[in-house]
Design a protein around this nucleic acid. Sequence first.
DNA 1: TTGTATGCGTTATCAT
DNA 2: ATGATAACGCATACAA
Lengths: 338, 338
Amino acid sequence: MDSINIKKLAKELGISTSTVSRAFRGNSDINKETKERILKRASELSYQPNHHASNLREQKSKTIAVVVPELANNFFAQAIKGIEQVSREKGYHVLILATEDDYSKEVSFISHLHNGKADGVIMSVSGEANDHTYLNRFSQKKIPLVFFDRVYEDIDTAKVTTNDYDSSYAATEHLIKRGCKKIAYLVVNKSLSIGKTRMLGYEDALKRHKVAIDDQLIIDCSNDHKKNYKLLKEAFHTLKPDGVFASVERLAFATYYVCQDEGIRIPNDMKVISFSSLEIAPLLNPSLTTITQPAFEMGIRAAKLLFKSLEQGPTAHVNEHVILNSRIFRRDSSADKI
Amino acid sequence: MDSINIKKLAKELGISTSTVSRAFRGNSDINKETKERILKRASELSYQPNHHASNLREQKSKTIAVVVPELANNFFAQAIKGIEQVSREKGYHVLILATEDDYSKEVSFISHLHNGKADGVIMSVSGEANDHTYLNRFSQKKIPLVFFDRVYEDIDTAKVTTNDYDSSYAATEHLIKRGCKKIAYLVVNKSLSIGKTRMLGYEDALKRHKVAIDDQLIIDCSNDHKKNYKLLKEAFHTLKPDGVFASVERLAFATYYVCQDEGIRIPNDMKVISFSSLEIAPLLNPSLTTITQPAFEMGIRAAKLLFKSLEQGPTAHVNEHVILNSRIFRRDSSADKI
DNA sequence: TTGTATGCGTTATCAT
DNA sequence: ATGATAACGCATACAA
C-alpha cells in the first residue's frame, strides 16, 4: 500500500493519530497551530479520513438514500435537488436509487439499506404491489423513512404530498366549465394512493356538476408507451371523450401523440389537462394546461422531516404529514378553442 | 446496541464468525447445509454484513461515482440508466453527484472521492473553468476515471463521446440547404471541448458552402434562462438570423420562448436545429429538429470502459476513446415552411 | 493539549 | 469443513 492514512500522516508529523483525528473533527480540543499544521500537510498529501473506517467507528454513514421510480422526470429531478440542498447543509450525502417502477427493485433497495449504507430514507414508491410489509421490518431497524408524493397509506411514517384531491377536483371542474361532457381520467395505477386520490377528486367534481360517471372513461394505463398509445387510440375512437385529465405527465404525452396521429384537434375536439412538472409545457403544440406540484419545495420538506427524525434519535417517531399546494397553469390545451 | 451483527448471529447458531462470513461470500469452502442454516437464520433476523466494515476490510467500496452537470435532463438521465445497468450486473452501486454546473462543486466532489467512497468515477464535466489539474492528483490515487460527452481534452483518460464535429457539420449543412444564409450558433461555453468541437463543425460547413462566418452570430450564452432569453431576444432583433443551431437543448428552448413572444415564426422566419435528447421533441410547436445522441448506449460504454480499467488493476491505464454516432431527426422546425 | 489503547464489524490467513 | 486471530483506518475514553 502506497496510499496515505492517519498513521503515516501522524508519523510524518511526529505526533499521534489521535491528534490528527482531532484536527479533522470539529469538536475536540486541539491546539490551533497544531491543527493548522496537520491540515496543511494533509492537504499536501491529499489525505482524507477514510470514509468507511469513520462510518464503522461512528456507526453511521452520514448518507441518506432517496428512492424514486425514475430519473428522467422533471418532478423527481427537482425534488432530488431540494433534498440535496438540505442534506448538503446538514453535511450528508445523498444516495439516489431509481427503481424504474419495478417493485422488486424497490424491495431489493430497501432491504439492502439495512446494512448501514444509509442513516435514513426518502422515498416515492413504485406502487406496483400490495405487499408493503417489507417496510415494517425496516422501521424496526430505526432507520427513519419519509414518503413523498407517492406514498403507501398503510405505512405509518412521515409524508409529504400535495393537495391531490383538491387539485384534481379543480382540474376536472375546469374541464367541465369549458364545456366538456365526457371527460376521461388517465391513470397508471388506480389502486395506488395517488391515482386513487386524484380519481376521487375527478369523480366528486363530476358528481357535483351532475355529469355521469362512466367507468369506461377511467382508463388504466401502464408505464409502457407503446401499450398506452394503443390503448388510448382505441379508447379515443370508441368513447370519443371531449376532455382528458391525465394523472401523470407521460399519459398527457401519449394523448398528444395519439391526437397528432389521429387528427384529433386539441383543444377543439378534446381538451387536455395534466399533472406535470415539465418546464416547457408552454412550448408544446398546443401549450399544455398543467397542475404543477412544488417539486423542489416538496424535496426540501421531505428532507427536513427526515432530519427532524434523525435529530430526535431512535426513540422518537416522526409521522407528520405535510401537504403542499399544487398550482394550475391554464394554457391552450384546455382553452375554448384556438 | 440491539442491532444484529456477525458475532451475535454466530453465537446464536453456535458457530464461529468465520463460518458465518463464509456463508455470505461466494468463494470459500463451506458445508452446504451449514450455509443454508446460516442464511436462513440471517434472513429471519434480517442480518446483512455491515457495508462499512466489509469495505474497510476489503479496501474497496463496490461503488462507482457518476458526476454530471444536472439531473433534470433526459440525456444525463438516460446515460445514468445505462451506467446503472452495467454496474448492477457487476455488483456495483452507483453514487450520483450533480454539480449543477458549478465548478467548485465538481472539484469538491472529486476531491472527496479520494477517501474510498468510490472505486471509480464516470464524469461529464461542468467545464466552467480552465484548471483541471485537480484531476491529476486524482489519477495518482489510481482511481480510474472515464469521461463521457463533456470531456477535458487535456486529461489523458478513457472517454466516450459522439461524432460532434460531423453531426454539427451536418446540422449546419442541413440549415444551409434549407436556404438559411445567416445561421446563429448558440453555445453555453465555447471554450469547453464540446462547444468548441461543435463550433468547428458549424464553421467548416459554412466555409464549405461559402457562407461568410460572422462572429456576432456565435452567441455565447449561460445556464441562466432569463439571461439567455434577454441575450437571444436582443440578438434576434439586431442580427435577424434565419437559422439557429443550438449546441445544447436548453438554448433551443430559450429560442422557442423568444420566438413565441416576439412573433418570429419557426420555421418560416427562422429555422431551428438543436442537440437534444428530449423524447417529446415531436410534440413541440413546431416539432423540433434534433441531433440526438445515443445517451443510454454512451452510459453503457462508459461503464464498460470503467470496469475494464477496474478489472485490469491499478497498473494498467485505459485511455481508449469511444466515439458513437448521433442521429439527426428532421422535423418541422427546420422544414421549408409550414 | 496530547498520547495510549481499545473496539467498531468484517474477512483472510493460518491452523486444526 | 470449521475455528481462532489479526488487521483494515479511524475516533474516543482515559491517562498523562
